[in-house]
Write a protein that binds this DNA or RNA. Structure first.
Length: 106
DNA sequence: GTTATGACTCTGC
DNA sequence: AGCAGAGCCATAA
């Protein structure tokens, strides 16, 4: 994958404010790569453990967590809850999604 | 070069 | 609302 894409994705993900989430497609689109939602996910999976990126704030478009049933999913769920994201039934309400250009307030 | 796969998304049932 | 199928695009075999 182009380093450009990787860098853009990192930038976008890092820009997501705490207590807010974004979908893969959303991140991909804002990074400038519209149809690469899957690759955002791939990058997350390839992300080093020590990375400071809030990968747990990146979820599916419908608000469900793709990692449910895996240890990473538990961690993600726990971190989101700690950041104030309302996780309902292993899912996040759309109102908690990150609006581009927004800080986190509504 | 073709086939299979995947931290996805959309549409239709 | 939940499930199934098709579309999408880079990687790997």
């Amino acid at each position: 994958m182009n380093a450009e894409f990787r860098d853009a994705v990192y930038q976008i993900v890092g820009a997501i404010p705490a207590g807010r989430v974004a979908s893969y497609g959303q991140v991909a689109r804002q990074a400038g790569w519209p149809r690469h939602a899957r690759f955002v996910g791939r990058l997350m999976g390839q992300l080093p453990e020590g990375s400071a990126l809030p990968w747990h704030r990146v979820i599916r478009g419908d608000g469900s967590l793709p990692l449910l049933g895996t240890p990473s999913g538990e961690v993600q769920l726990r971190r989101l809850a700690e950041e104030g994201v309302a996780v309902i039934g292993n899912r996040v309400p759309k109102r908690c999604f990150w609006a581009p250009g927004e800080d986190g307030r509504r």
